[in-house]
């Protein structure tokens, strides 16, 4: 009983925190996003969840920076409203390291609301014929320093993801639950092979069933997410294909269960296939996706699911979400098992 209550509480917390906690402020884009050296340019910063016009004692500081040693600070900063800000830069006469062009990150620092960053926001081209040496002192005169942290409990702002970052608490736990359920199913299949009791077979089947349900939910939530981040719900990404195949394995498991008239034979062979299929899931889900390019995080060239993607505020929601969803999965399976047990008893099979 206590774990069902825990599940409900954790999931309520996940849904409330997951949807209500705001995103950190960020910069959506800057306009114009390109210039040449030596020009004077007024750049518009479009913010997200920002409060540019909120009054403060010290003015907002704005930079376009190349790395920690080279940064350009805006001479004039004029907030238009909370989300739009105009900054005038005098572009230097040459570029660091003698490059033909550099990609600059945009940074706006509000004294009370904190700093927001947009990586690779601006391209600065070298005007042909200008001198390379010595480097314009504007690059080093006013470095990025004394930034103000963003206060309060909020989720990270990431370009492309925006608000969909909240799907982390719903999409990712599905895979955790799926693996836990399939592992439980295999565990009971192994137990069945050692001691053929109907109860073990019932459990193995129920966990596999609920595992499929969570797999479908993971696939669906992933497709919704992909619509907004990858541009379309299904892009034949290797992770999507492998997931579909993993589900096919378990559909095959149920086809196999259904193709015997003798329940003992059905249970035994299904148990054998379950163990076999689960073991072949490992190369399917972990080895093969690494061989192909993928858009999915954790694959080649993409950030892994690690410290970069999950900050402390997200952890505070993500881990409870995993536990909550796992308990829910086992709860559903438990109901299935009890229902099936009653059915078997009524039919005199157990």
């Amino acid at each position: 009983m206590w774990w069902k209550l825990t599940s409900v509480i954790l999931l309520l917390y996940t849904i409330l925190a997951g949807f209500l906690v705001p995103l950190k402020s960020g910069i959506e884009r800057v306009e114009p996003n390109t210039a040449r050296t030596g020009e004077q340019v007024t750049v518009r910063f479009y913010g997200y969840n920002t409060f540019f016009s909120r009054p403060s004692e010290v003015p907002i500081r704005v930079w376009l920076y190349y790395n920690s040693s080279y940064a350009l600070m805006a001479d004039v900063v004029r907030p238009i409203n909370d989300t739009i800000l105009e900054a005038t830069f005098r572009m230097p006469i040459n570029l660091p390291e003698g490059k033909p062009f550099v990609l600059l990150n945009a940074l706006a620092d509000h004294p009370t609301e904190g700093a927001s960053i947009l990586p690779i926001a601006f391209t600065l081209h070298q005007t042909p014929g200008s001198t390379q040496i010595p480097l314009d002192s504007a690059w080093t005169a006013r470095p990025v320093e004394k930034l103000h942290p963003q206060k309060g409990f909020s989720f990270p702002y990431q370009n492309i993801l925006y608000e969909t970052i909240r799907n982390t608490y719903f999409h990712v736990p599905m895979w955790f639950v799926l693996l836990f359920l399939f592992a439980a199913s295999v565990w009971y299949s192994l137990k069945y092979l050692r001691h053929p009791e109907t109860e073990y077979d019932r459990r193995a089947a129920a966990y596999a069933e609920v595992g499929i349900l969570f797999g479908l939910m993971g696939l669906a939530s992933g497709m919704v997410w992909a619509t907004y981040t990858w541009g379309k719900p299904w892009s034949n990404d290797i992770k999507q294909l492998m997931t579909a195949v993993a589900l096919l394995i378990y559909f095959a498991y149920f086809v196999l269960r259904g193709s015997f008239s003798d329940p003992e034979k059905s249970a035994r062979l299904a148990a054998v296939y379950n163990v076999f299929a689960f073991a072949s899931l490992i190369p399917l889900l972990y080895i093969l996706p690494r061989m192909f390019d993928s858009l999915h995080p954790g694959a080649t060239g993409n950030p892994a699911f690690g410290s970069q993607d999950l900050d402390n505020t997200m952890r505070a929601v993500f881990y409870p979400a995993v536990v909550g969803w796992t308990l829910l999965g086992f709860w559903i399976a438990d109901l299935r098992i009890r229902f099936q047990r009653l059915k078997d008893r009524t039919l005199g099979l157990d």
Binding site: V245, A246, L248, I249, A252, V255, L256, S259, F260, K265, L269, Y273, F276, A277, S280, P283, L284, I287, L288
Partner: peptide, 20 residues
């Protein structure tokens, strides 16, 4: 072989295993 329609079953059961 323990089931009746074995040719179909082999294709269904082995497809995911053979895919990698």
């Amino acid at each position: 072989a323990k089931a009746d329609q074995s040719a179909t079953l082999v294709a269904i059961l082995s497809f995911p295993v053979v895919l990698p």
